[in-house]
Design a binder for these strands. Structure first.
Ligand SMILES: [Mn+2]
Ligand SMILES: [Mn+2]
Ligand SMILES: [Mn+2]
Ligand SMILES: [Mn+2]
Lengths: 218, 218
DNA sequence: CAAAAATGTTAGGCTTGTCTAAAAAAACAC
DNA sequence: GTGTTTTTTTAGACAAGCCTAACATTTTTG
């Protein structure tokens, strides 16, 4: 079907398009995949032949409907395996990405649907990212960064703008987790830093950090 | 470290040595891996360079201590993943081999030890094969084929001579499983076929089938 | 033990995925 | 709009892993 490498390219392509890059530039994809532009060009031609992307020389790539479906299948696998690793094997949320990066390429008829059932059909992965369903439908999160909240708002943390290990460990140090319920106490006029309180916490976040944390208003 | 292909060669080498082939012939390994003799020769040279096998032209291969350890690690992973697939994802025992063939190559510091703990440190896989411990120690099974039993013996099925899908499905049809306790009723003088009874079964096995089933006497 | 058969190795080629360096095209700047 | 800078593609190379066909060695056999 598709090689691990092809799957990685398609998943990266999906992520970049999701973030608004349309079409996706050669160098952008190269940076994301830590590879060289020339390798990306080679893969672009191969994926185009397989009708997984639209590609015109010097004009970048876009996923076709078929390529998008493959990308969503890989994303589903990635996020379900991450959920397994955290919920069942007690990994920390900053340790699972690289393992899932390998597990997402394991291929078998209904392995992933059985894993989904075993995990109780989770809606999101350990980082708060929505898990595509088996048809490839991705729930659009109804959330906003903390930076757009007002003092007095009651909020719940539902996701992150990115899941870099640095951000994840930062949140661990602040004892903030997906699902936490908090109240915005104040936003400082000088540096837009945010003071929040929860159960038994009183936390101050820089505007930089607050901008990475996605919440829903309660 | 080692590529999936190298790991597959080492695991196959271990299995063939375990069955008594020492040294292992090029063609034997080629048949086992469904590849060509010339590919095996190529890999022999590479594994020798990595000091994972001893190899002399025209004389076959033998695992070194290092190669044996790698093979046992892969075997451990294979059997633990098989156990996971059967116990947690409800796969049948004849479906899990090919999936484990992929999962065994996933590499991460203590993934397999965590999986081991999650499964409750199983001693054997779904086919009754012993699971090497983390140091690479493989418990030697104390079992014999049904064919060497005598009428009147009380036995427990503990393993199989091979785990081919055909044998596994044959045993399913006969409602025989690992762990079943049975009594040998008779061995026919004409064709050495065996009649056994258990809980609520009365089964006749050909000598061919009986020779594949490993039991311990109670 | 010499010829024949079986087994194993080498030579050369293919594919996938990667890279560097050179060339081409596009975008930017004045 | 022309020249410069940036981006992208092409050309050519390489490693891994596999293949076929030709050749070499070992084993078997009469
Ligand atoms: Mn991956
Ligand atoms: Mn995630
Ligand atoms: Mn394998
Ligand atoms: Mn097994």
């Amino acid at each position: 079907m598709h090689s691990p490498s092809e799957e990685n390219y398609l998943k990266a392509l999906f992520a970049l398009e999701y973030d608004g890059a349309r079409p996706v530039n050669t160098n952008l994809l190269a940076a994301r995949l830590k590879t060289k532009a020339s390798s990306v060009t080679d893969m672009a031609r191969k994926l185009q032949q397989k009708k997984l992307v639209h590609y015109r020389k010097y004009r970048g790539m876009r996923l076709t409907a078929g390529g998008r479906k493959v990308a969503l299948d890989v994303l589903r696998k990635h996020r379900l395996w991450e959920t397994f690793l955290v919920q069942k094997l007690n990994y920390r949320w900053d340790e699972v990405h690289e393992i899932a990066e390998q597990l997402e390429h394991v291929r078998h008829k209904d392995l992933i649907d059985r894993l989904d059932a075993f995990l109780g059909f989770p809606a999101t992965d350990p980082h708060g990212d929505p898990i595509p369903d088996r048809r490839g439908v991705l729930r659009m999160p109804d959330s906003c960064p903390i930076t757009v909240c007002r003092p007095g708002d009651r909020i719940r943390i539902v996701g992150l703008r990115d899941s870099s290990d640095e951000l994840l460990r930062f949140l661990d140090r602040k004892t903030l987790r997906i699902g936490d319920t908090l109240t915005i106490r104040a936003i400082d006029d000088y540096d837009r830093s945010v003071r929040l309180t929860g159960e038994d916490k009183d936390i101050t976040l820089s505007a930089l950090a607050a901008g990475k944390i996605l919440v829903e208003k309660l």
